[in-house]
Design a protein around this nucleic acid. Structure first.
Lengths: 231, 231, 231, 231
DNA sequence: GATGAATGAGATTTCATTCAT
DNA sequence: AATGAATGAAATCTCATTCAT
């Protein structure tokens, strides 16, 4: 995923990418801590150990450029995660693929806490922005994300593995519920964990397998008990 | 819900509430349009047709006070909506109650578009804020919201109407999926509707009944086809 | 000095003066605590237990009117103190009169700490103000104060009790040194008294007699030792 | 005293100090004219020919930082003046040293009128401030100023040149009377000089020598005529 | 290419005063 | 006469971005 160490690149280009990376990491941390609008560029520059002006050599759009570069990363990784779980699923069932996707998503965002926080904090605000460039960015990214999963959903429906509900709606909901639960895990960690009044059952939030089991059962088997099977 | 016209109040008090309302409406509109951090108080004051200083007579905390007063409203209404659908459900099944709740939620937020946009844009950012007062506010509101629904979920599980999955996790997901779909409807409206590449199937987003049908089916029946029933 | 209880006045007029007094006392306290510019009129009104608007019925000049009314009081009292000690001195020596004046000044300002603080904090700033009305006010008050003492100084010089130094300069310095020492006492009280590094010897600042002895000796006998007298 | 032209500094550092100086001069002028609280930072920036924000690069504490930097200067210079007159007095008598100190003080503040006005207008207000940081600042500066002179006073007392009055009280009064007379000179200049009703004899205020003669005579010989010497 | 000093638009907030009740 | 809600001018301060070095 990281191309900073790609040996086929010139030294100059490799160094350039390393600097970009340092800036993005610093930005991710500061944005995550203070929120995009409250994050001073000075602090990012300081943490990245570069001059403030240098950032503009690497991100022409300045502060906002950093944020969107982070979004690019987040969406690229999410789409890769989807593809690796669903397109290259082999003969694993759709249900098993989803289960695995949940587990890997949990793990991925655990390692990229800051990045995920930035998604949580900023993406919805920007989705509903005035600026058509921004809304268009998210429309495209979400479109691509949906498409990455939609064909697998469609195939499963054609195979008769899942009910013939509207494909894109199902796809959208599958992604959302995973996202929701990860948000919830982050929220739980962000709050005092000693607090007894946890919103959802705690075990789900610490254990990716348990979370995946829960979501898979909920979405695939449904809430309703099946009374007909015994007769 | 609105007490601005409550005849038992003194004229002075009624006028005070009307002014508060005007300020909140103006704030809601400006926040929804520009986002909280980019919304100048001047613009709110101007739209509310009051002097800037007057707003501080009504909301000591200034701009932030306005935002949280709006959140109070949103959470109060949501909790009322939950109670009216689940606690006073009569002998309606849990599934039917949920279906109705989805319909009413769609309708409610259609009428309070701005309020909902403020929730979308700002609440997650503030949930993850540095400021413990803010995180505590959301913890408390979410707790209360969950609790309003949890007892109905528990009762349904005890009755054997729904599977015995972890109560609070189920409750949380039920609320989230509704929220997600309404976000999606708003997003769709916010974007150029002429755009053909809609993420989810459009009909769901314009028709509260269709949306409720979809969500209810998805969550109660599950995605997986039931192959056992015909045999 | 206080005319609020003067029985020759109509009840209406007496009440009016009582209200003025309450406002002045409140203003004096708040000005002394926060300084004139930082003192909100709301706080004065609240402490005086009147509406903010009411203050304008009693002091047309508003906040500044309160301050200058306090200055009027301070200068009137100071001038009265001078007259009672020097003009009505009987056959007491000028030196004895000055000694007594110092004692009474210490005592007076001990009882009117707030008033004195206002003089200290605000009068010099206003003396050097841009506004000619203000500078003229202080010029007049200082002139009157000087004149109240100058004739006694002149008489003492003519009698040969004191050296024939320039009358008004001597008068000015006599008043200033007393003021300086009282400022110093206030400063000492305002600071942590436990502090060992007190600027002047502490006893002078707590004991009006000691202070008067010191100032009288310093000013009348001079610093220089008299070596000629014994031979 | 000024290091802006110190040739041992880098050009960058020299320029930095020149800019600081320009800001301090502008601040001193505007504070002196309008008083600290009424002086808009905009006006200081404009007079210094810098952007408003630039001032914050040089004085992190903003407007207050400028004021205290000016106080630093004033106290440093005063303490230097004391040391150069008393500590390095050679075999000059204490009386002669004081006389010279008065002359030099008059001259110094004549050249730094604005700086002196700031001391007059703001220092006493801040001495009595609520904020312990500020009161501590003045306590320390006054302490240092007193100490700079106190040893000379003590030595003079031990030599038998001056009466054995409490050292620090004498020291304090010596400084105060000089300050008082310079205030008075400034006041006189600030007012319409055509005004005949001058508080002290005018000649003293224009002529540093005359002022020094007056103060020295008053403080060292005392007001009281010496009747014993002829016998 | 890297830097960081300079910039000034723009934000929130305070508060003396007015004036309708 | 007493009130206090409404007002908006004015203040400080922050910070993304530019650009000369």
């Amino acid at each position: 995923m990281s191309d900073a160490s790609n040996p086929s690149l010139s030294r100059r280009e490799r160094e350039r990418r390393m600097r970009r990376r340092a800036m993005l990491d610093a930005a991710s941390a500061v944005f995550a801590e203070k929120g995009f609008e409250q994050a001073p560029l000075d602090e990012i520059a300081e943490r990245a150990e570069f001059g403030k002006g240098t950032i503009y050599n690497y991100f022409e759009e300045g502060k906002e450029g950093l944020l969107f570069a982070l979004f690019d990363e987040a969406y690229d990784d999410l789409q890769a995660l989807i593809r690796s779980n669903f397109e290259e699923a082999g003969d694993r069932s759709f249900r098993a693929s989803f289960h695995n996707f949940v587990v890997e998503s949990f793990t991925y965002y655990e390692e990229r806490e800051d990045l995920f926080l930035n998604l949580i904090k900023e993406s919805q605000r920007l989705c509903f922005s005035d600026d058509p460039e921004k809304t268009e960015y998210f429309r495209r990214q979400q479109q691509r994300t949906i498409e990455a999963l939609a064909s697998a959903v469609e195939a499963a429906a054609e195979e008769g593995d899942i009910s013939p509900l509207p494909t894109r709606s199902v796809t959208y909901m599958l992604l959302e519920v995973v996202y929701d639960l990860i948000v919830h895990r982050s929220l739980n960690e962000h709050r005092d964990t000693t607090d007894a009044t946890c919103l959802a059952d705690v075990s789900l939030l610490h254990d990716a397998e348990a979370a995946a089991d829960f979501l898979t059962t909920l979405l695939f088997d449904g809430l309703e008990t099946r009374r007909d099977d015994s007769m």
